[in-house]
Design a protein around this nucleic acid. Structure first.
Lengths: 134, 134
DNA sequence: TTACCGTCTGTAGTCGCTACAGACTCAAGA
DNA sequence: TCTTGAGTCTGTAGCGACTACAGACGGTAA
């Protein structure tokens, strides 16, 4: 299959496929006589793996590790589990951060009395001239 | 005050302060005879504003808008409120995405039977050879 | 044949910094 | 006085994960 077909089969942009090849995540495929990339089902499987892992928020570096690990079928999957767990912890941290942020931003917005900028509580919160009431 | 003082007063790195100047977010300050940047309280206030807005997750472009708006004190603060609300929506979207991701990743990890990679459910989920049971 | 895709390579841009390299200025201690 | 060491200067390159071109070539249908 050609790069465009592979790309649409995996919901990836053509440029991204070439990028993955460039950084060594996807092996260089054979070429047609016209120098077009010719992919097989192994490429499709590998790219699907990459995209799925990316969708789950793994970094490309983590994806690279997962790919290496998945190549050694006899090995214990502890390392795989470890990577996933680290990633889960990271996601929990991000959710926590964003939730705190949300609360704060909500408070800031809630204080808006829709007057002029001079009396805008949002601006005031961002740039406290004097200490705001606690 | 010198750049290092300004930086530590706002919990910013020196390089970041210079970066903000370069992209026009912070006006170029006066210079000492030794060509050191010499900041005043206006710079401190403006950088504090920037940092606070950044802490709340606004992009630099949004910060730029907020700064422009906050300069016109007579104007209605509707635009300010609007930017904040758009940002809040964005945060809600991110939290939703991450939560869905968390559920999915948790499911994937929960399926790990700690065997070999060949039978690893995590890898299997990422690279479904055949359709997995629903 | 002409139009219009798709593909090729290579490079530069995105965001928000961060990390150098190599030169300077300044203040304090021996 | 000399010498450290820390701070500052400019400029450039790097990060992650793409994305967007430019300019050339290939393939196909009307």
């Amino acid at each position: 299959m050609k790069i465009g077909e592979l790309a649409s089969a995996t919901a990836t942009k053509v440029e991204t496929v070439r990028y993955y090849e460039k950084i060594g995540l996807l092996p260089p495929p054979a070429r047609t006589s016209a120098n077009y990339r010719a992919y097989g089902s192994d490429h499709l499987a590998r790219l699907s793996f990459i995209r799925r892992a990316r969708d789950l928020g793994f970094t490309l570096e983590a994806v690279r590790e997962l790919l290496t690990l998945s190549d050694d079928k006899a090995q214990s999957c502890e390392a795989v589990d470890g990577i996933a767990r680290v990633h889960l912890t990271e996601i929990d941290r991000k959710i926590g951060d964003l939730s705190a942020l949300r609360t704060e931003l909500d408070r800031v917005i809630g204080s808006c009395r829709h007057g002029t900028v001079a009396e805008c509580k949002i601006i005031e919160t961002l740039a406290p001239r004097r200490k705001a009431a606690p």
